[in-house]
Structures are given as structure tokens and as C-alpha cells.
Design a protein around this nucleic acid. Structure first.
Lengths: 156, 156
DNA sequence: TATTGTTATACTCTATAACTATA
DNA sequence: TATAGTTATAGAGTATAACAATA
């Protein structure tokens, strides 16, 4: 049995490191002129081209009116395009533009550099163990493997 | 060498799980009528009674004006008391009231239950490994062992 | 009548700057 | 003149509700 101080420290560490990792990622994407929520939207649209705003809201766990603001901003910067669906003209189909795909490519590079930086102090065995344990925890809590958090309520 | 998809997944998992853990902790402390930032302040004051607001701001990584709001709220609820320092009447010495100590006790119980819930799916060996790896990472990034994140800027 | 997206609006959180009281 | 704390204020992010277009 693990003692109480270790019990306490584990959740604390997870929260601290998760926050640290997010903040560091935010710094990096800012170099691309993006905020973290932009990055998540681009990622989701690159994998699911043609998604409607409503689908996107559902997937991100937020409300449609928030998606309007997110997409307005990305559209203004020429990274995402809205086109009216021909099947149902109420829908907007969302897709990355060419510039959006290019930014998405840069984002992949940034994500990889981010990972390398974060886990540079671990050896291969430690990384493998950490990956296994964190994946087990995430699966247990039903976390969506494609969606970054931070689209609803206030982050804590 | 670990392959690229594993690299990527690790930081992603850390952010997801950290956010999940914070959100779950926020739910639990809400049962005590607190928000997470209250919990961190109570914790710090219980270990450092007599702290000034300026010291607290520095420790939390935020600005003095934010501390005013945090302490106002805790004082209104009778959990923290301000007393003018006799050495330097510009300073407020901050201390938990009796009710504040009682709430702090309840908070310890909640923190422990939180840990048990989060890591229930792991066996002792996995917990030990996770603890070692996370502690190594946190130390490498210079994270303060006593301070929860979330007092500056916006959560991500 | 129901649904998609939009707008208007309000609320919370946080930071900056000006202010007061003490030193 | 400098420092601790406070107040006023402004900005960002997010949600709710009312609305227009389409089904």
C-alpha cells in the first residue's frame, strides 16, 4: 500500500504537469500566430473535412455560438473556409484552405518538438512506461483521443 | 528510439489527464462551497500563517490586486482573517480562522478521496513508477511542490 | 414546427493603473 | 520617495437567449 503523502502528491503532480505542458504548448503555437483553441480546431478539421459547425461544437464539447467566433477568426486569417452545404443549405461545411493545411503541417512539427522537449529527461523505458500508464488512465475516464480539452467552461 | 506517434501521444495525454484531474477536483471542492483557487490559498496559509498579501501574490504567481479579491471572498465567508502587522502597519498578516482550519481539514479528506478515485485502476507498482517519473519531470521544470497552478493568465 | 447558424448581451476572471495609508 | 494594499476599469473568454434562414 502506498502511503498518504504519495497518494496526495500523484494527482497534484498530474495537474501541475498538465498545466505546465498546456502553457508551454500555448507559447509554441503563438509563434504561428495561433491560440491553443485554434490548433485543436485545425486538427479536427484536417481529420474530418466538411464537418458542420454543430458537429464541431458537439465534438469540442462547447456551444454553437462559440464555434461561430472560433471559425470567424480562422476564416479571417484565411485558414478555414465555410461553404454552404448543397444537401441542406442551413449547414456550413468547414474545410482547411491551402494555407490552413500548411499551418497544420507546421503545427505537427511544433507538436513533435513540444513532446521532445517535455520528455527529454526520460529514457526510452520510462517513456514507454509513462505512455502505458497514462493511456490506461485516459481510457478509464473515457477521454476522447482526438480532442484537446479547454473548449468549455473555465479551465482550472 | 520511440516512434513519432508515441511521442505525440504522451504530451497530449498529460494535458488531457491534467485537465481532467483539475476539473474533477473542482467538482469535489465545490461541495465545500469553494472554488479551486480558494483551496490553494487555504493550503498555503495553513502552512505559512501570517503571510502578507504581497508574499502570497508572489507565491501564487499573480498580482496583489488579484489577492485582494481572493482574500475578500474568503474573509466574507469567515475562513481567513486579516490583521494589521504591528511591525509595519502597511502589511496585512493572513491567517486561517477556526472555521478556516476546519475547512482545511475537510479539504485534506477531499484531496485524498480524489487521489484514490483517479488512480484506482493502477496497481501499487504502477503508482510507484508513475510517481517517480512525474516527480522527475516536475523537478526538471522547477515546479513548486506547494503551489497548484491556475492563478495567472487564463487556463488553457 | 424544428434545426443551423448568427447576433446581442451579460457575466466571470484577470490584469493594469491610479489612489491611500503607511514607512 | 518607496511600499502594501485597494479601487476603478478594461479586456478576453464563454455562455444564454432571441433571431433569421432554411427545412
Amino acid at each position: 500500500m502506498t502511503d498518504a503523502s504519495t497518494w496526495r502528491r500523484l494527482g497534484f503532480l498530474l495537474t501541475q504537469l498538465g498545466t505546465f505542458a498546456s502553457a508551454r504548448f500555448a507559447e509554441r503555437v503563438r509563434d504561428l500566430g495561433l491560440v491553443p483553441s485554434d490548433a485543436g480546431v485545425l486538427r479536427l478539421l484536417s481529420r474530418n473535412p466538411g464537418m458542420s459547425q454543430r458537429d464541431l461544437a458537439g465534438r469540442l464539447g462547447t456551444v454553437p455560438s462559440r464555434v461561430v467566433v472560433l471559425i470567424d477568426s480562422l476564416e479571417d486569417r484565411g485558414l478555414v473556409a465555410r461553404t454552404r452545404s448543397q444537401n441542406d443549405r442551413r449547414n456550413h461545411e468547414l474545410r482547411l484552405t491551402d494555407a490552413g493545411h500548411a499551418t497544420m503541417g507546421a503545427l505537427r512539427g511544433i507538436a513533435e518538438a513540444h513532446e521532445r522537449e517535455l520528455f527529454a529527461s526520460l529514457d526510452d523505458e520510462e517513456r514507454r512506461l509513462l505512455q502505458g500508464i497514462l493511456a490506461k488512465l485516459a481510457a478509464g475516464f473515457g477521454l476522447d483521443a482526438e480532442v484537446h480539452p479547454g473548449y468549455s467552461e473555465r479551465g482550472q
